[in-house]
Design a protein around this nucleic acid. Sequence first.
DNA 1: GTGATATATGAATACGTGATCATATATTCA
DNA 2: TGAATATATGATCACGTATTCATATATCAC
Lengths: 113, 113
Amino acid sequence: MLDFNSLSLSDDKTLCELADLFRVLGDSTRIRILCALCESERGVSDIAELLSMTQSAISHQLRVLKQARLVRVTRKGRASIYALDDDHVRTIFEQGFRHVRHILPSEGENGLA
Amino acid sequence: MLDFNSLSLSDDKTLCELADLFRVLGDSTRIRILCALCESERGVSDIAELLSMTQSAISHQLRVLKQARLVRVTRKGRASIYALDDDHVRTIFEQGFRHVRHILPSEGENGLA
DNA sequence: GTGATATATGAATACGTGATCATATATTCA
DNA sequence: TGAATATATGATCACGTATTCATATATCAC
């Protein structure tokens, strides 16, 4: 557990970085990209085809995800292979899903998924 | 652990809800409000003063946070007291911080906080 | 009831941003 | 080298949204 007293309002820089992280996650295209990468690493055009979007749109979004340290790239020939930067992203996702799906309707851990 | 195979691209509705949740978290004002509420429940004008913002701006944002089920309200006299909806929010924050602060540089759980 | 206080809300505006189009860069192969 | 393929990038536009201002609603004290 982290110490949330350290999250006091004085630490504005960290809070802005946190908001920035969530802002990057707050777009359905980027979420779908990350989901695609949860399964396995992929090239740009593969992702574009998976999501039925243009290569350009995906490339632009991958740039955003890379800047946020959420994905990493490796060149393989003329392809850029993108992957989740670490398993961290999965954990953030997991908590988000718990909220969205109301696994914890109000309090208590008795899952009624 | 959740099953991330269930996060396949077919489940677009859930993915959009997830993006919506993160979008709400992706604003520094709302993050600061939630942080203020991490400490204790508070009235609107208290929050406004804490963040040096207008009552109106805070009220508008609290509405967004309420719609996202991130905060709940109780009336006490003429004051509306806002609080985190559940401890869930803290957990989501925690994961976000872990990423921002790079507590896990690449992999492994050995915290070098 | 009136006045004071606390919050909510609607309209307007300024700003950020996601997708598109055209084009540039990079890599492989002949 | 030149053609083909894969990706990156800059400009533009349309749209969403955070804040402000003015005002409405609600609650308490009298």
